[in-house]
């Protein structure tokens, strides 16, 4: 069941398995992205800890071509899908900001209030 402080993003199957999708656009940038692998999801704030700018270069392009890592297409940092930790590139040691997400009756839910992003 969805609580009053959650918002639905889409149904799990609306994200192709092994792919990512961006949500909650402000102007032309999505604020949040969700990666799906099977029934598991991970959601992050769409902001790279290197410059605090969005990661994607085109709509929903958040992952490496093999789908195994999150890539920031600003300056080439790579991140673990599971932990959000930077594993290669200029912000090594930093992490993406996770968004607590869950699947309820096939619907992906995240909190209404997103985590704070440094500037």
């Amino acid at each position: 069941m969805r609580s009053s402080d959650e918002r639905p993003l889409c149904r799990l199957e609306d994200i192709p398995d092994g792919r990512a999708r961006g949500f909650l656009p402000v102007n032309r940038d999505d604020r949040v992205f969700v990666v799906r692998r099977g029934d598991r999801i991970r959601a992050y704030v769409n902001s790279c800890p290197h410059n605090w700018r969005p990661l994607d270069y085109a709509q929903d392009q958040f992952l490496s071509a093999d789908g195994r890592e999150i890539v920031c297409y600003a300056h080439g940092a790579h991140f673990s899908i599971d932990s959000g930790a930077c594993i290669a590139g200029v912000c090594i040691g930093a992490s993406l900001i996770p968004v607590p997400a869950r699947v309820d009756n096939g619907m992906i839910l995240i909190p209404l209030e997103l985590p704070h992003t440094p500037e």
Partner: peptide, 29 residues
Amino acid sequence: KGYKSFWGPGRHILGSNNFWYFNSPFGGL
């Protein structure tokens, strides 16, 4: 065409070049 702007358009001071940066699939802007 759907590409994501990183910074710009603007004009730099050192070099005076006008700029508009975009995220790209090459590992940098």
